[in-house]
Write a protein that binds this DNA or RNA. Structure first.
Lengths: 145, 145
DNA sequence: TTTCATGTAACTATTATTGTTACATATAGA
DNA sequence: TCTATATGTAACAATAATAGTTACATGAAA
């Protein structure tokens, strides 16, 4: 993993968990699939756990599993849980805010971005984890890395 | 300038140019206003020049000026000129794309983001540079840094 | 032809993100 | 209860992206 992001990493992990509903997968197993480190997986899934999307169990035979069916998990829930912003925030340095123009640029952009954020949120709510999984399964699954 | 972005930097500069329509402002003068370096200003405004939004003149009394009134410059034009993305792209590492799930996540997200991008573009087209400038002037202009 | 501006390449510094190591905590099973 | 195995998390290192700097070429006005 290099240019990826926490959001797509989380989605990738969630699809893997959905693909093997009878198993719990360890961070290490998922890390191999996602070509990254087990701690990175824990960090990402930890946020999803706090949001109640996945459950973690410790000890032998422990690992991760979906907390509910993929049909009941929306991308918006994942997005909100990761506390990641799809829209880049163009906040200025506090020092620059002495300038009225900077404040106006920030204000107009914030207004626009808040508005846009709401639009995106509504659309993300309509996409479910199951939709991504279906897409992946229908693709001929040549290598579920 | 620290946490800023090229887009808000460009907007800030454009409002300054609009605020003094009779003058051409040098990169150095703008850099002082924007609390950054003259080369950074040139880099940002250079992109706007290529897009035909501003004009630059060399030599004594040279500098930058708007190519047309602020009423005829939309945020979308600025946004497109800077080649900056408001939506973060969640592209995966080429190596990871051997995995069908990664490709599906990327595909679903791309679809969503392309769609969202079009929405944002439409909205950015409706905001003009003059709108930001009006906001700044109406704010009591205590310090045009 | 001198002066002052942009244009740009090359390099450094800073920041954010990701990856790694190490260790504490908890749980299943012998 | 002891051991093996998993998560949870802090602290640190490595990497990549961004901003800032220096240096110098180019072009235009007086």
């Amino acid at each position: 993993m290099k240019k990826s992001s926490r959001l797509s990493l989380a989605l990738h992990a969630l699809v893997h968990l959905h693909a093997q509903p009878d198993k719990v997968l360890t961070s290490q197993a998922l890390a191999s699939c996602l070509m990254t480190n087990a701690v990175v997986v824990r960090r990402a899934l930890g946020e999803l756990r706090e949001a109640g999307l996945v459950v973690a169990s410790k000890g032998p035979n422990g690992g991760w599993a979906l907390a509910r069916p993929a049909e009941e998990i929306t991308l918006h829930q994942v997005y909100a849980a990761m506390d990641e912003r799809l829209l880049l925030r163009t906040e200025s340095d506090p020092g620059d805010k002495a300038c009225a123009i900077v404040r106006s640029v920030d204000r107009v952009m914030s207004e626009f971005l808040d508005d846009a954020e709401a639009l995106l949120a509504a659309r993300l709510t309509r996409i479910r984890l199951a939709d991504i999984a279906k897409d992946a399964m229908g693709a001929g699954f040549p290598r579920l890395g």
